[in-house]
Design a protein around this nucleic acid. Sequence first.
DNA 1: ATGTGTGAACTGGTTCACAGCC
DNA 2: GGCTGTGAACCAGTTCACACAT
Lengths: 236, 236
Amino acid sequence: MTTTGEGTESELVPTPVTKAADLPAATVRRLPEYLRALSALTDAGVETVSSETLAATCGVNSAMLRKDLSQLGASGMRGVGYNAAALATHIAGVLGLTDDSRVAIIGLGHLGQALARYPGFSNRGFDVVGLFDADQGIIGKDLDGVRVRDVALLAEAVRDEGINIGVIATPEAAAQHVADLLVDAGVTSILNFAPCVLAVPEGVAVRKVDLAVELQILSFHEHHKTLGRQETGTVK
Amino acid sequence: MTTTGEGTESELVPTPVTKAADLPAATVRRLPEYLRALSALTDAGVETVSSETLAATCGVNSAMLRKDLSQLGASGMRGVGYNAAALATHIAGVLGLTDDSRVAIIGLGHLGQALARYPGFSNRGFDVVGLFDADQGIIGKDLDGVRVRDVALLAEAVRDEGINIGVIATPEAAAQHVADLLVDAGVTSILNFAPCVLAVPEGVAVRKVDLAVELQILSFHEHHKTLGRQETGTVK
DNA sequence: ATGTGTGAACTGGTTCACAGCC
DNA sequence: GGCTGTGAACCAGTTCACACAT
């Protein structure tokens, strides 16, 4: 079974480790936002940024930002702030973005095609190297330079092309099967857009994005605003 | 059913209130998943379901499910379980799905077009009645029976067509402007796909979906898995 | 016997407030 | 002065375990 991480190599090292082994999940969720804000700042020529300023642009509390950053071994200068460029590099390193991840998208309906062409992926360190579908009408089609292949070739491609993230954009009915294919081929990170819960073995990370769920949550707030008085429903 | 009609505050009322006024955010997030699982069950002919079973299909702890349900005034029968159909109806009522929400999508690039045609919206009680863009090359185009209009007509349409949810699928640069338009037109629920933090007044609910962020979170886990095992761990 | 409903314990996450360094 | 780093207080969310209804 998937060996549960056992990085015994650096246990004796006495230094304040830069290693970000087990960050709280809540912290990890916020890192990409920090990174994006920092990129915007450095692009604008900013060199140093205070936790107060950065937190404001990310919509979070400054104390939380500082705690998050200290948890990953990043450090600012007291009285000054953080070096924006260095901090961005550090966060990118913690997130493992230094070498591009190789992504396969399975299911090239409207959503899958949109994902395949989504500039935010390539812009932020993700190479979409594989597109797969079961529909002969789509197989062979070229999307921004990547040809759609038969899903039967998925396992081979995962091995040969070092794909390490699978994005499932199939209909619900096919999602679990595709997940099984990915897992069998050795993929341990899956992003699932199908509206269903996937069963995967331990050690495989699955994140689910259900577009309709987001609308339903908004619907709840909308519904309860219109019930009686208005409510401060500003959620994140 | 769902007598959630009264909008009056009920602090003095001694009865076990059916009111789902301020549900914990964590509970609200899970309701759509419960609803989806229940729909699947009723479609399969199931009449009664235990918290244990339902929780398993939703991937949550059964005690949490029971607590969630009791918090919205739903009730099962001790020793038996929950009536699947009645529970589904009740949750739908709490989420405000009894009358379809009217959705506008702004920005019809690849992602916006995919959203416009996403079957999960109409299937789950959302009417996409408005499509808007600023690009003359897209305005006028017909997407599954809905014509793309000039974003200049957005405010008018919001008022005339009772649009109450806005979905922003524009590039980052336009997102805040569109959000302002929506807010000015009276929309208080926004789903934002642009990778930026929107500034909105109190009382406006914004949910953000950043597709790249999800990949970055997966990247983190992937990165830290491979710190322990350096070869791609194709373990079965 | 079975499975809900819920107080109580627990875990994780956020905010506060201030000591310490620049 | 200004701002980071962090213990302590606080709060939300989750799990446990069991009384109680059917």
